[in-house]
Amino acid sequence: MEFLIEQILNGISTGSVYAIVAVGMTMIFGVLRAINFAHGEYYMLGTFGGWYAISALGVPYPVAIVIGVAVTAAIAFVIGRLVMERMIGAAPEASVVATLGVSLVLQNSVILAFGGSYKFFSEGYIEPVFFGDIGIAQQRLLIIGLCILVFAGLEWMVSHTRIGKAMRAVSQNTEACAVVGIDVRTVVIATFVLGTSLAAFSGILTAPVNVSVYGSMGEIITFKTLPIIVMGGLGNVRGTFIAAMILGIAESFVAGQFGLQYRDSVGFVTLILMLLWRPHGLFSSHARF
């Protein structure tokens, strides 16, 4: 029983990490109708930013989070202006090629700048908290808490702020937005920077528990995110949250019951099953935002 609760707790903390990454990807899909295959790379950039801030500048962990997110947002802004902006109204295959290209460039730039070897992230709050016999690291509780805050914030933003409403509008009908005077480009860039910053945020939050930091660490994140946003219904924020939790908990069970080596197959099996039976996701694809 304790083992079961521990697995569920672990699953929720993993799911929270996925959720923060995936919600950014699904929002970008909403406004651009493009899958951002470079999404994991922003997760990697954020982690590297935080690692560099700690190891080279010696700042404390909370400051490193801010620096990592800020650096990623700046890079995302440049890529947004140079690449993503051009994807508005472009053919779907254009965005596949463009984002895969961005992914290769970002990954290899980081390897060129910092070398291909593994770096170790030595900050964060990894002391355990025990509830009876069930232990969980403070960092993982922090991740769960911040995930809830992020989703509450996003809900509030899309329903109460002007930019949030504009994001919803653009995701529903780009042409109508242009007609009523919404600057589609600004909305796209803002969504892109927000979405990638969330990926970076998630990366730095996970770094203390995943420890190793390296150039190609984003790949697996991109591939984990795909089944989540498909399951959640592309562009659906609440659906993404639930789908991320389902995947996180399922992975945790598989790792605990069948062995670590089967864990990564859960996402791919889910993706195949979803595409076979419910290509619109578990939730209606019309319920965007």
Partner: peptide, 15 residues
């Protein structure tokens, strides 16, 4: 060598 730090940190996590 690359996995020792990960295991060591998760040893802290698991008490």
């Amino acid at each position: 060598a690359d996995t020792t730090p990960i295991i060591a940190r998760q040893m802290i996590e698991t008490g």
